[in-house]
């Protein structure tokens, strides 16, 4: 038995709060006849109104439909690219799945390029498929990422922390330094600052913020900006 806020192992039944209405089961939970069981080890979390999920440290990405990921093109074969998104299998990316691409007008993508893409198909049994356009054919921030910068790989739970609306990390850094960032749910982060020095500093700041709370993060950012400007 595992209660909200407690640590559980796969197979543990969860004790849900007595609330009305449908409950939402997030990653790491499964309904088995009349009980809800954990399928991942970790902390059982709860969010209003009725959402349960398991939070744990993990580096292996499990592709999920609709998530934005940052991948590397590893192979070009016929009319698809193979993209390494950190999952158990490489994802396929059609060359038509770029903004403005037609059969005659192929997109300019080379092996080794980084692409920020959205998972269109992610099922247990087939290879995942990614696209760089939305349903209306616009790129909307997806596509090849070029012009320098630096990419790091962090645990997937760190990504969730950075992207959560409560986290101040990106905003605090952005208040004092101009930079651009692309964060994939697969744990890959691409960062680009004005200079190489700034890029490295930003990368370090993001990488070491995993176990910090908001106060510590803002303190760390202040220190970083001070040392960057030479104080």
């Amino acid at each position: 038995m595992c209660e909200v806020g407690g640590i559980g192992l796969p197979g543990d039944k969860i004790v849900d709060k007595e609330t009305d209405g449908r409950i939402v089961l997030g990653p790491g939970l499964r309904k088995e006849t009349e009980h809800v069981l954990m399928t991942k080890p970790g902390k059982l979390c709860f969010k209003d109104p009725n959402i349960y999920w398991v939070d744990s440290h993990h580096k292996r990405y499990i592709p999920v439909r609709g998530e934005n990921v940052l991948g590397v093109v590893t192979n070009k074969s016929g009319d698809t690219f193979k993209v390494d998104i950190g999952g158990s299998e490489q994802a396929s990316l059609s060359y038509l799945a770029f903004e403005g691409a037609t059969k005659r007008n192929r997109p300019d993508v080379k092996i080794g390029d980084q692409v920020f893409c959205k998972l269109l198909v992610a099922s247990k049994h087939t290879e995942p498929e990614v696209v760089c356009i939305d349903s209306s054919g616009k790129s909307n921030g997806l596509g090849v990422i070029r012009d320098g910068g630096m990419t790091i790989t962090t645990p997937c739970n760190h990504i969730r922390k950075i992207l959560s609306p409560d986290c101040v990390l990106l905003k605090t850094l952005g208040n004092s330094l101009p930079y651009e960032i692309a964060i994939g749910m697969n744990g890959k982060i691409w960062i680009k600052g004005r200079t190489t020095k700034e890029t490295i500093a930003l990368t370090n700041a993001i990488a070491c913020a995993e176990y910090m709370n908001n106060e510590q993060i803002s303190l760390m950012c202040r220190k970083l900006v001070n040392s960057l400007s030479g104080f």
Binding site: V24, G26, V36, V64, G141, L163, S164, L177, I183
Partner: peptide
């Protein structure tokens, strides 16, 4: 109870869009 299964964290936790830019970069 009836349940909805959501496999992705993105809508569950209201995560922000991954590409961002600051100070007009």
């Amino acid at each position: 109870k009836p349940q909805i299964i959501e496999e992705s964290f993105q809508p569950l936790l209201g995560l922000r869009f991954g590409r961002q830019s600051f100070k007009g970069f």
